[in-house]
Design a protein around this nucleic acid. Structure first.
Lengths: 236, 236
DNA sequence: CAGTGGTCTAGACCACCGA
DNA sequence: CGGTGGTCTAGACCACTGG
């Protein structure tokens, strides 16, 4: 039972991270070559290669074929950031999630929306506006436009049961996405539906998702500043 | 010259991603086993193992020893998020970065700050307050407390030349970090130094970094909402 | 129990870098 | 040119899952 010995590649990673964290090896310094580490640890090259490859993926070291492996300039720390479904997120906190549906419509793309979706102005687009509630309290105003080519059945969804993100992840698997997080004041509509004052600062996330050849969707997600924060952590 | 054929493990990844993206394989469906893929592609097990391991790291599939590999419930998309030095960030945009130093002091830890740094109230801590300017315009108010044990030379730094993040990444390599992003209104001090109105919403990032056994630093970074956003993108 | 994935080895060929 | 990393193979042993 209890603790098993760490896998060899993890031991190699720990060794290198240790020398970097302790300041022993400084940014730009060379890390021992694969063959040197093979000899030192008495393991095969595939094993040290995996260790170094994973450290490179984490940004701790940089590798150049023919040249060698070096400690990254600022040995940064990084973590994975994932697009998640807000329903999952709320449920994971042990809370209840509900949705209030404000708009479900087929519209002609405005001059603002059309280019973002890669469509001509006036082309048909799907538009939904919903409020997401956590334990009955509004936490997100979701204003979303969807490209019919990417998700033809979008409007048939019962959005009180399935979130747009969930539907889209299932029917228009995404291949690419970009986002921006800003601080802003809510519009009059947003403030009213979220039940906050117009002077209360909010987080707004603009998100654009691509599925294959199509832009699948563009969304503006507004969160009351006092009720939500984006949090995360990193582990070396 | 030109394009070389993709490595075998990338071909296996592309094959699997294709079946998932096309909706051919749905969430929860089993992915062919390593031995099946070996036979299908005529490659060794190490090769298909690497492909599946990387897809699992990206969140496309989940693997359970003894059970098998399946398409992830929501084949999410994710990217790496990295702690960066604001100086780097600004310079990378081709702009000039400058710093205005407001406070550099050794203080007794307040009841708020002490626990966050893992120190007793009243213990000495380093405190800096700076403004970061991009092309002369204030974009970040940085209020930071540093644990002397983690970076004894912190106060000797010339903060007009070296950012706190840079100093800390060099002298107290981080092993762990957590952050939270919120929307808020600036304090009177923050508004004055940033040159904005007190009613202008801001992004505030609270960041806590750990270096080895010590909490290295806690910082509050305030960005004017109209001048800054956190942006990123994902690629499958 | 058979089948799965987790790890590992001892070779190998290649492309690339720097001297 | 020698040394580096990028990739790959054909085996192997193990731990775990499921029926």
């Amino acid at each position: 039972m209890s603790k098993r010995e760490l896998p060899a590649y993890e031991q190699v990673k720990a060794f290198i991270r240790g020398h970097i964290s302790s300041g022993d090896w400084k940014p730009g310094d060379p890390v021992p070559s694969e063959s040197a580490l093979m000899a030192q640890f008495g393991v095969s090259r595939m094993t040290v290669n995996r260790a170094l490859r994973e450290l490179a993926a984490e940004g701790m070291v940089t590798r150049v074929q023919g040249s060698g492996t070096r400690v990254a300039q600022l040995h940064r720390i990084s973590s994975r950031l994932t697009i998640r479904d807000i329903h999952e997120e709320v449920v994971e906190r042990g809370h209840t999630h509900a949705t209030r549906v404000l708009t479900v419509a087929r519209e002609a793309a405005s001059a603002d929306v059309a280019p973002a979706l890669g469509l001509a102005p006036g082309a048909p687009v799907f538009h939904t506006v919903l409020i997401h509630l956590e334990n009955g309290i509004p936490i997100q105003y979701e204003d979303r436009y969807v490209n019919p080519a990417a998700a033809p059945d979008y409007l048939l969804t019962d959005f009180t049961q399935t979130t747009p993100t969930h539907h889209l992840l299932l029917h228009a698997p995404l291949t690419e996405a970009s986002y921006a997080i800003e601080a802003c004041l809510p519009t009059a509509d947003e403030a009213r539906e979220l039940g906050i004052k117009r002077s209360e600062p909010c987080l707004a996330m603009m998100r654009r998702t691509v599925s294959g050849a199509n832009v699948a969707s563009v969304a503006r997600l507004v969160y009351p500043g006092t009720r939500y924060s984006f949090a995360g952590q990193f582990q070396a």
